[in-house]
Write a protein that binds this DNA or RNA. Structure first.
Lengths: 132, 132
DNA sequence: CAATTGATGTAATAACATAACATCTGCAAT
DNA sequence: ATTGCAGATGTTATGTTATTACATCAATTG
């Protein structure tokens, strides 16, 4: 899927996420955009919904937050399942892909005749700097 | 870790989860326990916290719900990372383990000198019956 | 008994997410 | 050009999930 032109609100939300050091909650994004006229959570959630659909933003289920995709220029969908390592101390997120992991998980679901729609892999812990 | 004797509230919450067909939210558990004297969310969350610690209950991050561990008698911790396939139609949850997936993920984090604490693998989709 | 610890009870509030409805804007069809 | 539609936006209210703060209670132990 190619990313369509972003609307005004989508661009604002995406810019905030791109400039952020780490993942942000929807309400944090809202606060950062009040100066730009944002008044209600729905403005953020609606933009996020599209950005997620386009694959330029990821949702981190385990911390109810959102990050810009770490692979600008690539089409995230081409990488298969995206995995995240999330530092619980500094908030830094590392995004990665592992075809063998995808293969094993998809092999298992195929054996169960389960039809996967969306897969979440999130590793919470401490990054090298914070673990020291 | 061996599971200690459960307290009254822990037992009540665990029983509700064991008898349930699928995952339950904390507030659903609360409603089911009002007859047993539960009045506030915290009574549920506190019990869940311990049950999660003992490994007899799992939290499904992507749907903000909880399930009893599908491997009674086993110590879940001995299985390494637990993965879930969650049917978005009927709510059924399948729990499984894959050592190769664990190995790949842990290999990756080791390469990053990341110290993992808790890993989530959740596949949402449709179970065989619902996909038909 | 006093002190400590872990479990519990209760109220209030914080944090996350969606429903429902109104309005606006750009554009295609006639 | 105007009508009609679709998508985006604005606004209010509400629903859902989770935690903070503080009080009480029960069992244990020094």
């Amino acid at each position: 899927m190619t990313t369509p032109q972003l609307t005004k609100n989508q661009s604002l939300v995406f810019d905030v996420l791109e400039k952020a050091e780490g993942p942000l909650s929807a309400y944090t994004i809202l606060d950062k955009l009040r100066d730009h006229g944002f008044r209600a959570p729905l403005q953020v959630y609606r933009a996020l919904e599209k950005l997620l659909e386009y694959g330029v933003v990821h949702r981190l289920e385990s911390i109810n937050s959102f990050v810009a995709c770490a692979h600008p220029g690539d089409d995230c969908h081409s990488h298969g399942i995206v995995a995240f390592a999330i530092c619980e101390s500094c908030g830094q997120v590392m995004e990665f892909h592992d075809h063998e992991v995808d293969h094993r998980l998809m092999g298992w679901v195929r054996g169960q005749k389960f039809k996967p729609a969306k897969t979440t892999i999130e590793i919470r812990g401490l990054c090298e700097a914070c673990a020291a």
